[in-house]
Design a protein around this nucleic acid. Sequence first.
RNA 1: UGGGAUGUCGCCAAGCGGUAAGGCACGGGACUUUGACUCCCGCAUGCGUAGGUUCGAAUCCUGCCAUCCCAGCCA
Length: 555
Amino acid sequence: MPSNFIHDFIDEDIAEGGQYEGRTVHTRFPPEPNGYLHIGHAKAIYIDFGTAAKYNGICNLRMDDTNPAREEVEYVEAIKEDVNWLGYDWGDRFFYASDYFEDMYQFAVELIEKGLAFVCELTPEEIRETRGTLTEPGKNSPYRDRPIEENLDLFKRMRAGEFEDGKMTLRAKIDMSSGNINMRDPVIYRIAHEHHHRTGDDWCIYPMYDFAHPLEDALEGITHSLCSLEFEDHRPLYDWFIENCSVPYTPRQIEFARLNIDYTVMSKRKLRVLVEENIVSGWDDPRMPTISGLRRRGYTPQAIRNFCERIGISKVDSLVSYDFLEFCLREDLNEHALRGSAVLDPIKLIITNYPNEQKESMTVQNFPYKPELGSHEMTFSKEVWIERNDYAVDPPKKYHRLYKGNEVRLRGAYIVKCTGHIEDDDGNIIAVTAEYDPESRGGKAADGRKIRGTIHWVGTEDAVDAEVRVYDKLFSVPDPDDSDLDYHELINPNSLEVIENAKLEPWLLSKENQGNAFQFIRQGYFIEDSEDSTKEKPVFNRTVSLRETYKPNKK
RNA sequence: UGGGAUGUCGCCAAGCGGUAAGGCACGGGACUUUGACUCCCGCAUGCGUAGGUUCGAAUCCUGCCAUCCCAGCCA
C-alpha cells in the first residue's frame, strides 16, 4: 500500500515519543447495517484493512447499529459477505456497537455526575429553534442547570421506559455559542421504543453516533479511527467524549475524502430509490455500484482493490472517471480470463467451396500467450456464424474484415476470400459467401502471405443460443449529484441492451468452466449471470468491453 | 456575516525551500491468428490568484477568489 497523509500521521504516532509508541496499529471498518455496501465502502475497507496490514496491525469489523429504526439483520450478513469477498479478514474481531450499550449508559451516567450532561425536555422543534444558526449562537436550554441528582433520576427513568419517544433527551453540556454547531449541547441519547435486531426490547433509549462512536473505538482499543471528510468538524466532539469519559484507550480520528465516480451515484439513499422504483432489478443489479452488483457483473476483487490503491488517498473532493475503474478491471481480466468465441449479432457465412457434409475439429488455445492453460476444440463446417458487422458491402477505409474480394482469417480455422452475399426477396442480406483456402488449415497461409484481418466465428453444428446482456452507464450525466434536473431525467435509458440470440461455442458452457470469467474474443469480458441463467436458456453479462481503437471514419 | 476543510495537466495524484514523479485519458508509431494485450514516443516555462520573504518558492508569509461540509432526537 503506497504511503499517504494518514500513514504520515501514523508514522509519527508510533515513532519514539509518539502517542502510540509501542502500540499495535488498530483500525476498524464500522458500517451501519441499513443497506448494501458499494464501491465507496470498498475504498474505506481498503484503507481500514490495508492500513492495518501495512503496519502489521489489526482491523475490526463492527456494525454501527445504534439506530434500530432503520437497521436490519439482512444487511449484516450481506456486509460480511461483501467484505469477505473483497478479500479482507477480520479474524475473531466482529463486533456490534450494541455490544457496548451498557458501557455507554454508564459513561453517560459519568458525564451527568461530572455535571457535563443533562436531561432536556425541549421538543425537537424547540431544540432546533434554540440551536441558533450558522451565524448566530444558540440559547441555553432551560433544563441545562438541573441538579445532578434530578438528571440521574430522570435518565434512569428514561431507560426504564417511563417516557414516550421524543419527550426527553440526554444532552452534553458544552457550549451553545460555539461556532461549531456540533458542540452546541448535542443530544447524546434519545428515547425510541423500537425493537433492536440484537438487543430486542432491552433498551428504549439509544445513543447517538457522536457519543457512541468514540466510545466504541476506545473500548476496542482502536488507535486510528479513519472516516470521511464530513466528520471533520465532529472531531472536537469526538475528542471531548474521549477526554471526559473514563475510557481505557485514546483513539485518534483522521478523515479522508470519500470516493465519487462519474456517471453513477454513491449514496445509499439514492441507490435505494433505484431499487424501490424498479429502475434496476435489485441491489445486485449488474449496473449498480454496489459490491454485490459489481460481483454479479463480473468484477473481480483484485480489480477493485487495485482501483482503490491507484486512486490514492487525500482530502480533495474528487470525481474519479469510470474509465479508470474499467481500466483496472480489464487489466486484471486480461491476465485471468480464458478466451472463447461468441457471436452476438449472428449472420451465416457460407463457404461455397467447402465439402457439403464435412466437419472438422479445430483446436484453439484457451489463452493465446499462456499455452499452459491448454486448448479446446471447435467444430468447423460449411456454414459458420460470424458477426454481422464483420461484413461490409461498401467498406470504410482501413476495414480489414469481409468485403467482396478481401481475404480474412477465421480464427483458428481457415483463410477465406469473400465472394459477396445472399439477399432475400426484400433485399436483406441473409448470408455472406466466401471461398476457403484448403492449404490454410489452422489459419496460416501455406505461401506465407500476410492476412490483415482475423475474425471470430462459432460453428453452426454445435452453437448454443444464449441471451447476452450488454450494459452501459446507469446515468447519462457525469455528475448526477450536481444536476438540477429530476433524478429520473438523468437515467440513461440505454443502460441495458438484451441480445436474445447470441451464438456461443459449447465449450463456454462446459462443466469445467462453470462460473469462469471469459473473454469473448474481440468483444469483451463476460460472465454467466448468477441469478437468471439456466441450462435451457443461458444468460451472460458483459462485464466490460475490450478497448476499441478502430475508428471507421478516420481518414 | 459563523465554524471546519480543499485548490498541482481533461481525471486521479506525488511533491514537505533547490529549480514540476507516476497512472488514466488523449495523439503518434511498432508488433499482432483478438483493430485486444505488449512495446516505444509525445503530452504542465507551469502548481487558484495578487503581492511579499529568499541567491532560489508548488513548497514560507499576507490578502483575495473558488469549491465542499455543518443548523437530524441520522450515521
